[in-house]
Design a protein around this nucleic acid. Structure first.
Lengths: 190, 190
DNA sequence: GCGTTTGCCTAAAAGCTTTAGGCAAATTAG
DNA sequence: CTAATTTGCCTAAAGCTTTTAGGCAAACGC
């Protein structure tokens, strides 16, 4: 039996695809071995354990998302930028539900710090440059945007807004309008 | 060996506690059996399978959350009601992280329809009676509130806003102020 | 008390995770 | 170009979780 050419990278990539197909929590070392038509134990030379695999998939997803974000934000500002980044998250989650779920994995602090996580925070902060907010309001706004993006996307993905009128695209548009209005007119403390 | 007095209800309740202690995804039929000092197979008379157990814990959490919501909303309106319901979600998630995670479980449509889910939608809609919104804006606003509550709580719980100033309580207050302002001044279409 | 139901048990099969040790293919060195 | 070394995938095995099947004794209903 020849060699298949496993590498950590190929495993992680295949794991991400598997996640999109069957759900992130169904991504198992066994399933991945099956996909490469290889014995399970063989994967353990490339990946420390199941947790390591999950973490690597999460890191990949975070990176991909940040790359898309950077691309979308280039040359945009204000509401244009807001909409562009918001759509990046929403579209990514719809195209890659498993990867998006992976990106939600709780990472330990050092791993999180070394991940693309900070890039995401920076992107959101960049959007706010188009609005007139100073600290600490800017941080509050960063957190609000993160909450809405993540909350909306995960509720929509989970079927939380299921099959009721009006359609979710319309809601998404109106929510972004509302956020834009809110950021342009951020209420002062008290 | 006498009988321990297992019932579906006791199992579900213990499962919920276990979830809060070790995380919802660590709630396993085996772990639950261990907790009752009983053989694993014994649980299968009270619970169909692992999925059934998870679903029941999720339903319990949704119910508890809705009960707290009803209590909090009684006699309140406007921003008062908004804050009260928002705090119910946030406090519940902090007190019962495992149950809160369970409440996020994707239920199949019939189960979801029979769950306390609809009560949650009704509660959010009730809050909006204090603001001047008509359909379809009301639905958009319901979805926005759901997104913010869920998004904020799950990011905070997951450590997304970790240890950076300003503190999360301050942000939470300001976000609710902002939502109140936004609802009082919902931007018209276009 | 007697029969029936019910509750917890043992047994067993099947799948996932992880470690240890082996052999052969690929790579490097002389 | 062979020899030594590294590397990649393998077999074997132990441990854990899930789930089903069948058994025995405690609890309950009359």
């Amino acid at each position: 039996m020849g060699r298949v050419g496993l590498t950590t990278d190929r495993l992680v990539r295949a794991g991400a695809e598997l996640a999109d197909e069957v759900g992130f929590d169904q991504v198992t070392v066994s399933a991945l071995a099956r996909r490469f038509d290889v014995k399970v134990a063989s994967l353990y030379s490339h990946v420390k354990n199941s947790d390591d695999l999950s973490t690597r998939i999460a890191l990949l997803a975070l990176e991909e998302l940040a790359d898309r974000g950077d691309l979308a934000l280039a040359g945009r500002a204000g509401k244009d930028a807001l909409t562009a980044l918001a759509d990046v998250y929403r579209d990514y989650a719809r195209e890659h539900p498993g990867r998006y779920a992976a990106a939600q994995l709780r990472l330990d602090p050092e791993t999180a710090a070394a991940s693309a996580g900070p890039r995401h925070a920076r992107m959101t902060r960049a959007i706010l440059r188009g609005y007139d907010l100073t600290e600490p309001d800017q941080t509050h706004a960063v957190r609000l945007l993160g909450s809405v993006f993540h909350g909306y996307v995960s509720l929509e993905l989970g079927g939380g807004f299921s099959h009721s009128a009006p359609d979710t695209q319309e809601t998404w548009t109106r929510i972004l309008d509302a956020l834009d209005a809110l950021l342009r007119n951020w209420p002062p403390k008290n």
